[in-house]
Amino acid sequence: MYRFIRTATVRNAALLPSALVFASEVTAHINNEYSLNMCFGAEQFGSLKVHWNFDADSLDRMQQVNERLMGDQDYVALLEKYKDIWADGAMRDTVIRLA
């Protein structure tokens, strides 16, 4: 089992509500279209970071989801709509092999 985690930093505190709207919309879209159980949350203290995560049985499954997302016009439209709320270069993806 593998866990994918994406962390993105919001540009400033005034944009946090918009970031949470985006997180909710993109999570709902991905869960509906790709049958994932993705979750999201925001750090409570110290930084303006939003985190997403989901588990997959294999790295191949993660790759399949990623390939489909690149052609998903609704997903791309969400990214474009909210592109200005994120700090430049502040997105990090991590994949963890669960024991």
Rank of each mutant, 00 (worst) to 15 (best):
M1Q: 01
M1E: 04
M1I: 05
R3V: 00
R3S: 03
R3W: 06
R3D: 00
R3M: 07
R3L: 07
F4R: 02
F4S: 09
I5W: 03
I5C: 05
R6I: 00
T7C: 09
A8Q: 11
T9G: 08
V10C: 10
R11P: 03
N12Y: 07
N12C: 13
A13L: 10
A14R: 11
L15R: 09
L15F: 12
L15S: 12
P17E: 14
S18R: 15
A19H: 02
A19F: 10
A19R: 04
L20W: 04
L20C: 10
V21T: 15
F22T: 07
F22I: 10
F22W: 12
A23H: 11
A23K: 10
S24H: 15
S24F: 01
S24N: 14
E25K: 15
E25N: 15
T27E: 09
T27Q: 11
H29D: 10
N31S: 04
N31D: 10
N31G: 10
E33W: 08
Y34E: 11
Y34F: 13
S35V: 08
N37K: 13
M38H: 06
F40N: 00
F40S: 08
F40D: 02
F40A: 05
G41R: 03
A42Y: 04
A42S: 13
E43F: 01
F45V: 14
F45L: 12
G46P: 07
G46C: 07
L48M: 09
K49L: 06
K49T: 11
W52F: 15
W52V: 04
W52Y: 11
D55K: 07
D55V: 08
A56Q: 05
L59S: 07
L59N: 07
L59T: 11
R61S: 13
M62S: 10
M62K: 09
M62I: 15
Q63L: 13
Q64D: 15
E67M: 09
E67K: 11
R68V: 00
L69N: 04
M70K: 12
M70C: 07
M70Y: 03
D72G: 02
D72L: 05
D74I: 06
D74V: 12
V76D: 01
V76T: 02
A77I: 06
L78V: 03
L79I: 09
E80W: 00
Y82D: 08
K83P: 03
D84T: 13
D84E: 07
I85T: 09
I85D: 00
A87L: 01
D88T: 12
D88R: 10
D88F: 03
G89V: 07
G89W: 04
G89R: 02
M91H: 04
R92C: 04
D93P: 07
V95K: 00
I96L: 14
I96P: 01
R97W: 07
